[in-house]
Simulated assay, not measured.
Amino acid sequence: MTSGTFSLDGQTFDVDNNVWIVGDDEQVVVIDAPHDVEAIAAAVGDRRLLAVVCTHAHDDHVRQAPALAARFSTDAHPVPVLLHPADREVWELTHEGVPTTDLANGEVVTVAGTDLHVLHTPGHTPGAVSLYAPELATVFTGDTLFAGGPGATGRSFSSFATIVDSIRDVLFELPPETRVHTGHGDDTTIGDESPHLQEWVDRGH
């Protein structure tokens, strides 16, 4: 976890962000690269970084993505920053003109024998994705699904109706025992959250 700020629509908030590192003793991917590049790099250590995968392009999830990728890139093994193209406009708010590599729905990112299946789960942002690892019975949801409800949808580029569709039609189709690793806060499971969907809809969470 790293701490910093999130800024959008002229407002700035203090936030703590989860950073997820998936792999083994030889190679890893980093899921989201927020505030502290030194801390993330230290956690990666001397392992080969295959990619920085962005669950979405809000600044508190991608602020250090280009710097982290550059830190571990070599001429032989450049490290891509993977982002769904629907979030390019949001990315440009923080990293204008900085290139990314497109991440597509249904794509599989493989690291150390573990497959991360890319699920396009828009709503929090247009290009938000979740990463499902069947072998780990785990899904990394970024800011789409938290313990207790959907991610925020009250700011630019977001849609409550869309995030509800993503959660209902994509995430809640996963096995109920699937552990949910979120972008902020505590873990949960699909089974713990799925009974509450109608409550969230009714209150427009």
Rank of each mutant, 00 (worst) to 15 (best):
T2F: 00
G4S: 08
G4P: 02
T5R: 04
S7L: 05
S7E: 15
L8Q: 07
F13W: 12
V15M: 11
D16N: 12
N17F: 02
I21Q: 04
I21R: 04
I21Y: 03
G23Y: 07
G23K: 11
G23S: 06
G23Q: 07
D24K: 11
D24W: 11
E26Y: 02
V29A: 07
D32C: 12
A39F: 01
A39H: 05
A39R: 13
A41E: 02
A43G: 09
A43M: 10
V44P: 02
D46H: 14
D46F: 01
R48P: 00
R48D: 15
L49H: 04
A51R: 02
T55R: 07
D59Y: 00
H61T: 09
H61D: 08
R63L: 13
Q64W: 00
Q64P: 02
A65H: 03
P66L: 02
A67K: 01
L68W: 01
L68G: 05
A69V: 03
A70H: 10
P78F: 07
P78T: 04
P80L: 09
P80W: 02
L82K: 08
A86R: 14
A86P: 00
D87H: 08
D87Y: 10
E89T: 12
V90S: 01
W91I: 13
W91Q: 07
E92C: 04
L93R: 15
H95C: 03
T101L: 09
T101M: 08
L103T: 10
L103H: 06
N105Y: 00
N105T: 03
N105H: 15
G106I: 10
E107W: 06
V108P: 00
V111F: 11
G113M: 14
T114C: 14
D115M: 09
D115F: 03
L116K: 07
H117P: 00
L119T: 08
L119H: 09
H120C: 10
T121A: 13
G123M: 11
H124D: 03
H124T: 03
T125Q: 05
G127T: 14
G127Q: 10
V129N: 05
S130G: 09
S130T: 12
Y132S: 13
A133E: 08
P134I: 15
A137P: 00
V139M: 08
F140M: 11
T141P: 05
T144A: 14
F146R: 04
A147F: 13
G149Q: 01
G151W: 02
G151A: 02
A152I: 09
T153Y: 03
G154K: 06
G154W: 00
F157W: 11
F157H: 11
I163D: 04
V164A: 06
V164K: 06
S166Y: 05
S166P: 01
R168Y: 01
F172K: 06
F172W: 04
E173R: 15
E173L: 13
E173Q: 15
L174Y: 06
P175E: 15
P175Y: 12
P175V: 14
P176M: 03
P176I: 09
H181W: 07
H181K: 10
H181P: 00
H184Q: 12
H184V: 13
G185W: 02
D186E: 15
T188Y: 02
S194F: 06
P195Q: 10
P195E: 10
L197M: 09
W200I: 14
D202H: 06
